[in-house]
Computed example of a mutant assay.
Amino acid sequence: MGEAALHTDQLTKRFGRLTAVDSLDLTVNAGEVFGFLGPNGAGKSTTIRMVLGLVRPTSGRAWVFGDDAADVASAHDRLAHVPADVALWPQLTGAETLELLGRIGPGVDVAYRDELVRRFDLDLSRPAGTYSTGNRQKVALVAAFATRAPLLILDEPTSGLDPLMEREFRNAVREARDRGQAVFLSSHQLAEVEAVCDRVGILRAGRLVDVASIAQLRKLRRTEVEAVFTGRPPNLGAVAGIDGLETATNDDGHLRMRFTLTGRPADALRALADADVDQIAVREPSLEEIFLAYYGDDVR
């Protein structure tokens, strides 16, 4: 696989009595999309700030393609970064901003940048001070994806994007991987990470709980279902993937069932389709709920 794009060894950051990142050992390989997943406040952004040299670790080290991240100039020659909250120069137009960002980075594929501008539907003629949050995010993403940097570090990069632009973002991530770039994607959105990543590091309360493939990550997904039946209910107890089945009778005499569905939903959907379903509600728990249910209080 060659030299790691990003590597950390016992990387730790404490703010007073608070340990934001605790003994983080992580390796991101060249040419892979690595998801850094965890609920808000887990320590993801603090980790990124240490890798970028914006925050000094309390202990431990980080390397970018073998260069110590503490050597900020050298490390930044190999990476491009999109922060969670993008701030631009308000008097510069979008075009001027992209030109400036291109000159201070490791080089730009200008033709690809122009293509991305079209795909992200970005008006470069306006001053950045007039841009919405989503448009500021688009400028930063176009600048990062168009760079020749071998490592892209993206911190909650789609927070201001609509669904169509999220699709373009995912396409651009895949294209970066196809060009051999490494992508380090920090997010709390399970679906986003699942769609584009090869591997995922799961962070909770500053500690790395697990490093998993996407196939392993999918096992964490579960859906809560509640259905009300007017006639004879299905035999859901025999359906694969259903756990925690509860039944009760409503005031109108109709039977109500609640259950948790994991894995493929096909068998459960077939069983429900054959019954007289009067009402159905489906809820996907938050990522934090999934983590708490899966890991409990054990973060080791």
Rank of each mutant, 00 (worst) to 15 (best):
L116W: 04
M165K: 06
N135I: 07
D123Y: 00
R126Q: 15
D121Y: 04
A111R: 15
D123G: 05
S132N: 11
D123C: 04
V139S: 08
M165G: 08
A144G: 06
Y131F: 14
Q137H: 12
V108T: 12
G107L: 02
K138Q: 12
D123E: 09
L152D: 14
G107T: 01
L151T: 05
P163S: 12
K138N: 10
R118N: 13
F120P: 03
A144M: 01
F120Y: 06
L124Y: 03
P106T: 00
A144T: 09
R113S: 09
A144C: 05
S132E: 10
A149P: 01
P157C: 05
G134H: 07
P163W: 08
D155T: 10
L164H: 15
R126P: 02
I153N: 13
G134V: 03
P157A: 01
V142G: 15
L122C: 12
K138W: 10
S132R: 07
V108R: 07
Y131W: 13
L124R: 08
D114M: 02
L164I: 13
V139R: 03
R113N: 02
S159Q: 06
D114T: 08
V142T: 14
P127C: 14
R126T: 13
L122N: 15
A111K: 14
G134W: 01
G134A: 13
D109S: 03
V142S: 13
M165T: 05
R148N: 14
L124Q: 04
T130L: 15
A144S: 09
P106Q: 06
L124N: 05
G134C: 13
V117A: 08
P150G: 10
L116F: 01
L124T: 11
A111F: 03
V108I: 11
A140T: 07
D114N: 14
F145S: 02
A128P: 00
E156F: 14
E115Y: 03
E115M: 12
P127I: 05
V110Y: 03
D121W: 10
F120M: 11
P163Q: 08
D123H: 02
D155M: 09
P157D: 03
P106N: 04
A146K: 00
G129P: 14
Y112A: 09
T133L: 08
T133R: 14
V110T: 13
E115I: 01
P150I: 06
L124H: 12
A149C: 01
D121V: 08
P150S: 11
D155K: 07
D109Y: 01
Y112H: 12
I153K: 06
S159P: 14
T130C: 02
G129W: 08
L164Q: 14
D162Y: 11
D162C: 06
R136S: 12
R119T: 07
P157N: 10
G160K: 00
A111E: 15
R126S: 10
A143D: 14
R113F: 04
T147I: 01
D123N: 14
Y112K: 03
G105E: 08
V139N: 10
A144L: 00
D114I: 05
S159H: 09
L161C: 12
L124G: 05
R119D: 15
D109M: 01
I153T: 12
A149G: 06
R148P: 04
R136F: 05
L152W: 03
